[in-house]
């Protein structure tokens, strides 16, 4: 093969697609295929948005691509009925609580795993990870009994604690990767300069891994926000999250699909905002975590 048209040391960024012969094909085919795939990704979400603009009667009547008689009535119900928007706030409160608890536990733990070798550290690391593998269904009943016994049942704190089951291992895992990327010399230099450990940790170390903290918070948010089984079992009235409220939209006239779809769209929004903020770090988060 020869490359008469391109200098060898040319700009390397799109080097991927620069192989002769398929270069032209790829230039057209790649965006096309990707576009098709993204369309496949967006269609179900579009369908949800379409339903959210319609009345239940219209939804059951047709499968036209565009919404018939679109209106914002469903959203109006969501934001004026306290039974709905309180559940939304409940969801947000346990997700944020969970993020706070997870980070405050996982940061020191991850630091220990990345900086010290101690007896059985590998085993503890793997054991932590097994918690991520446990099906929530396994822990359902014990959680229910435990939290009922200590009076946490039906509070956001109960759900936040229960979600630590799978978020803490993941957080330790991701943070450990980021922390191991920080050279140990930085710790040593700080001690030589007379920093105490807490001061070093808070003012020097944490800023260095803030991308990692952002990514971890994103994953905690994601897994806590989307979980239903534990959230449903551990709450009844006071702390009912929105995902649970959605499963109970059955009224006298049957299932209100329009309202349900609107609630669904509303649950996607915070996620979309969070993604937008961390879009450049999402990929990194896992790449740096050790296996």
């Amino acid at each position: 093969m020869t490359y008469p048209t391109e200098p060898l040391a040319g700009p390397a960024a799109p080097a991927f697609a620069r192989f002769r012969g398929i270069a032209l094909n790829r230039r057209l085919a790649a965006p096309l295929l990707l576009g098709l795939y993204l369309a496949f990704q967006m269609l179900p979400i579009y369908w949800l948005m379409r339903m959210s603009l319609m009345t239940p009667g219209d939804i059951m009547a047709s499968a036209e691509f565009l919404p018939t008689a679109p209106s914002l009535g469903n959203y109006r119900t969501l934001f004026t009925d306290p039974a709905w928007y309180m559940t939304y706030l409940n969801s947000l409160s346990y997700v944020i609580l969970n993020m706070a608890i997870t980070l405050s536990v996982a940061l020191p733990a991850a630091y220990a795993f990345s900086r010290y070798r101690f007896l059985g550290d590998k085993h503890v690391f793997f054991w932590l990870f097994t918690n991520r593998m446990a099906p929530p269904a396994v822990f359902l009943l014990p959680f229910f009994q435990l939290y009922s016994a200590v009076g946490l049942f039906d509070t956001p704190l109960a759900v936040a604690l229960a979600h630590c089951l799978f978020n803490v291992p993941l957080a330790v895992w991701i943070l450990e990767g980021f922390m191991s990327g920080v050279p140990r010399e930085i710790d040593e230099t700080a001690y030589v300069d007379g920093y105490s450990f807490p001061r070093f940790f808070l003012t020097v170390f944490l800023p260095l891994i803030r991308a990692g903290i952002g990514v971890t918070a994103f994953f905690c948010f994601m897994f806590s926000w989307v979980e239903l089984l534990l959230a449903r079992t551990l709450t009844s009235v006071e702390a009912k999250p929105i995902v649970v409220a959605m499963t109970r939209t059955v009224s006298a006239s049957g299932l209100d699909w329009g309202l349900m779809a609107a609630a669904g769209v509303v649950t996607i929004l915070p996620g979309a905002c969070v993604i937008w903020f961390v879009r450049n770090y999402i990929a990194k988060g896992f790449a740096l975590g050790r296996v």
Binding site: L34, I59, V226, E227, L228, A261, G264, P270, V274, I275
Partner: peptide, 26 residues
Amino acid sequence: SSLAIVILALPLLIPFNVVGTIWQVY
């Protein structure tokens, strides 16, 4: 790239039962 990543990541942040609901109708 950013746009594609955001679109790709969207399904990951949809609560599981909303995913179920979407597909049940879809």
